[in-house]
Every structure is written in structure tokens, then in C-alpha cells.
Design a protein around this nucleic acid. Sequence first.
DNA 1: AACGAAATATGACCAAAATCATAATTCGCC
DNA 2: GGCGAATTATGATTTTGGTCATATTTCGTT
Lengths: 225, 225
Amino acid sequence: MSKCEQCIIKQFNSLKSLTKDELMRISSCKTSMNIKKGDVIFDEGETINGVYCIKEGICKLSKLSANGKDQIVKIVVKGDLLGYRSMVSDEVSNLQAVALIDMKVCFIPKNEIINDLQTNPKFSFDVLKEMAHNLREADDIIVNMAQKSVRQRLAETLIYIHDSFGVNPDKTLSILLSREDFANIVGTATESAIRVLSQFKKDGLISMVGKKIRIENLEGLKRIE
Amino acid sequence: MSKCEQCIIKQFNSLKSLTKDELMRISSCKTSMNIKKGDVIFDEGETINGVYCIKEGICKLSKLSANGKDQIVKIVVKGDLLGYRSMVSDEVSNLQAVALIDMKVCFIPKNEIINDLQTNPKFSFDVLKEMAHNLREADDIIVNMAQKSVRQRLAETLIYIHDSFGVNPDKTLSILLSREDFANIVGTATESAIRVLSQFKKDGLISMVGKKIRIENLEGLKRIE
DNA sequence: AACGAAATATGACCAAAATCATAATTCGCC
DNA sequence: GGCGAATTATGATTTTGGTCATATTTCGTT
């Protein structure tokens, strides 16, 4: 079992603001777990009794809508904290988390960390900052959903993934998503997402390397109206 | 100038978690202001150097989209705190706030309150809870925008206003919005909002008392597919 | 290698909503 | 009370995107 106080992953999230003592205590009660691609980490309606620190891998946060479709509201990657809202709220989760690739995560029980949240102002301020940032992102998504076309939303999704999560050595997007995932991010039918991506390919904006997508013309994607 | 420590409005927001001493200090540096209907409280891109506590009135938070339309992301009412994200983030505002009716607000400078956020864990935990709640709401809005029809979103908006902000003695919705505001909440063209509301009226789901809307058949609105 | 299931692709058609145009109504203001 | 501007209303038309049907391809499993 690795030690939190020596783990470099925490540099990417609010846990960096914990003291060495706090980290050692957390380290002693955390659970490391491996999660397979496709596994449900937690489900809508479930009580989440702690926070997941993502050491490796990527997962999607989605919400089932009345018509039976999943809407992906966020992609969470290595370094991020998952389920941190459960620390503050006693409500059950409104989201489902599913691994997009194999993951390694550490689970920190709520009981252990909630105390730190209430006694370490630096830590709680950091969490506050993180939430404020997420709220701002959510505002942007709402506006995009409401006012932009499927083409635009899909182009922006590609750009977002490119800019936020980077590319592989062959320049393909580091995050591999199915057409259905793309559809569930932009909030459209799977067929529509397929059609738009095909068009982007025809237009030379993107290319496919196996199942992976490579952006060929970033500026062109940005100009999509 | 009224005193924060005696003000009952704070019961409705996180300020209730401040100590009497903290409240007295804040009271001495706050500014009371009257805001007229239609006034811009703050604009997108502005630095907000504090928090507004709403004593009276209602305002909308919106974001301008690329196509020139405003998207309303939240309605903020008496008792709420406005601009509290500025306490945690040094970024400029991503939203515009415009009064929907005349308002009375107290402005608390960021400098004065940020210290309390970092030293009073009860207060910061309260703010965290508030943000977590707002994030959950934002998730719901994203899913609605992505997956529901204009008819459904408009019906749900009416229900939301009814349930969250209440009704006048004559049973009309306490919040009076223009057709354009409705359009900007559900993310549609003004004409579409007008059409759908007209249809709701024809179907006996709502009625108009002057410019005010009265819900005649709440269950019917809930059944809109 | 062969099979079946899942993912991707494409066409045809339809429904929802945007856009454009034009009235009708309301409201502030002189 | 009347004028002009803003708001609300409604019709005609077009565009976007959803749905349904059906291939085609990919991939894991035996």
C-alpha cells in the first residue's frame, strides 16, 4: 500500500493542502482499488461514503434522463478527485461514474476526511475553489447546450478533449470515446454524432487512426458555425 | 444603516454561520444599495470584489452566447447570496446579473469576508454545501437542455418557479418574466416560447392575469412529454 | 477461421424548432 | 388621449436533428 504523503498524484488536487499528519492518517485508512474499463464506480441514487483520488485512468460522470439516454456531464481523469461533493452533502449521488479505461483509485472514507474539511481552512478553501471552477464550467456547458448546434458542440468537444487531456505520441486524442459517448456528451442521437464526425473527416478536420481520432485542422474546428 | 447581526435575511444563506463578532465587523463595512428593475448589478468580465446579500427583490444571472442571445442560468431571490464565487476565485465573473424587479441588497467587500471563510469552518462548510447544491442543480439543467423538448423545459420552468418562489395572493407566479426571459431560460427562440405558452393557455394548463401567469393545472404541466 | 454481437455508417423520412415576415397589443411618455 | 417603441402573437417556410431501417465493419469468443 503506497503512502499518501509520498504520492505525487495529490499535487493535482485539493489533497495537496492537507498537512503531513493529516495525509498519514488518511493513508492508513484509504483503500486502493483497481477498476476495469466499463465498471460502474458508483451509481445514481447511491450513497457515496467517501472520495476517490484517481491515480490512473479516466471515467465519465453521467446522468440518466427521462428518455433513457445518458447525459455525460463531465470527464474525470488522473489526478482529479471523484465524488468530493459527497463530503459536503448528505444527499445521494445524482450522477453515475463509469470507467472509460482501466483505473487505479484510492478511496478515502468520508468520516476520515470530513474532519479535515472542517478544521483545515487551506484544504476547504481549495475544495471551494475547485467547486467554483466546476460551477463555471457547468455554466458554459448550459449555454452551449442551449444555444449551439450539434456540429458546434461536437467540434468544441473535440477541442476541449484536445486541449484539456492532450494527445498521444501519434497526435491522436488521448481519450478514446465511442460514438455513443460523443453523442451523450453533446446531447444528441448516436446517429447524428456519427454523421457529424463523418462529415468532419470528409472535410479534413479530423482523421481516424484505428478507432482513435486525430485533429488535423484545429483552427478549422474552431471556426465551425 | 441596519445591522447584520440583527438582520433576519441572513437566516436564508450562509451568513447565518458567522459569529456575532464577525457579523458586527461585516455590518460596519457593508454598503446598502437600492437597485432598479433592469439595472445591471455586475457584468460578464467584471471583477466582483465582494458578495451581495439580497434583502429584497429578484435578479437573473445570465451569460451571453456567441450568437448574441442571453442564456439565463439562474434566478436569484431575496435571502440568497449573489456573487459568492468571487470570494474563492480571483477570476472575473462569467455571468451578468440584472435586476428583474427593484431590489435592496447589501454589498460586503471581499476583503472583509474572505478572512472569515478561511478561519470560520462552519461558515466555509456552509458555503461548500451551497455550492454543491448549485452544482447539482446545474447538472440537472444540463440534462434537461440536452434531452428534453422546448415544451417540456418550459413546463418545468413554470413548475420550478411555482414551487421554488411561490405565488401571489391571486395564485399567479410571484416572479414576473417576459416571454424573452422565458425563452432565455429554456434556451429557445422568443417566438417559440410565445407559441408554447399560448398553447399551454389554450390547453387550460395556465391562464393570464394581466401579464402574470397563473398555473391552472399543475399535474397537467407535469405530464407534458 | 467462423460466428455473433456490438459499433459504425448511411439513407429515407418526419418532427421540432429556428427564422423571417407581419400583425396586434401593450406601455411609457409627452 | 395619442404617438412610437417594445412586447406579444401568429403564419409561412426552412433547417436541424431525431427516428427508423438497414448495411457494413469491427471485435471478442469459441
